[in-house]
């Protein structure tokens, strides 16, 4: 019962033949080889599978493949532009926001989603924005530091995003 599904993935149109009842996370990882999107729970509790759907942060483990149709999807692989890191990625590196790194793609997506909607978040707003992204390594502090720094960088006109 495969079906053709067409959508914009990281800036390019893709058409795939797949089972529409599969989860979006499986299609991205297994069919399309984009393993940057992680799965940590499969129940929407950890945020590791976060992707941008029409610029909004959503959980790809709770989406069917069918729902990708016609959407603009950005995964972690599409966050950097033309070999240049997004300021969020740059700040994550500089501020030590990365440890095991398994939550990192989802965290970066959540942070990019936040800064798109709110370019000057307070520290509390940053914490709220990543409230659904479980990190077991960092205690979140350096992630919050990094997102604040990225917001600063973006306001000051660094490229990316």
């Amino acid at each position: 019962m495969k079906r053709k599904i067409t959508f914009i993935l990281n800036g390019s149109e893709v058409s795939i033949e797949t089972d529409p009842a599969l989860r979006a996370v499986d299609v991205l990882r297994q069919d399309l080889g984009l393993t940057g999107t992680k799965e940590g729970c499969g129940e929407g509790e950890c945020g590791a599978c976060s992707v941008l759907v029409d610029d909004t942060v959503k959980l790809s483990c709770l989406m069917t493949a069918a729902q990708l149709e016609g959407k603009k999807i950005v995964t972690i692989e599409g966050i950097a532009r033309r070999q240049e890191l997004h300021p969020v990625q740059q700040s994550f590196i500089e501020y030590g926001a990365v440890q095991c790194g398994f939550c990192t793609p989802g965290m970066v997506i959540a942070a990019v989603g936040l800064l798109t909607a709110n370019p000057a978040p307070t520290r509390e707003e940053v914490r709220d924005a990543i409230g659904g992204n479980i990190c077991r390594c960092t205690g979140y502090q350096k992630i919050v530091d990094a997102v604040e720094d990225a917001a600063r960088k973006m306001r000051e006109g660094h490229s990316g995003g």
Partner: peptide
Amino acid sequence: RLDALSKVTGSERYSADYY
């Protein structure tokens, strides 16, 4: 950390990432 770049770009391959 030297492993941060591959992790923030999603290119690091963990054991779970092999198909």
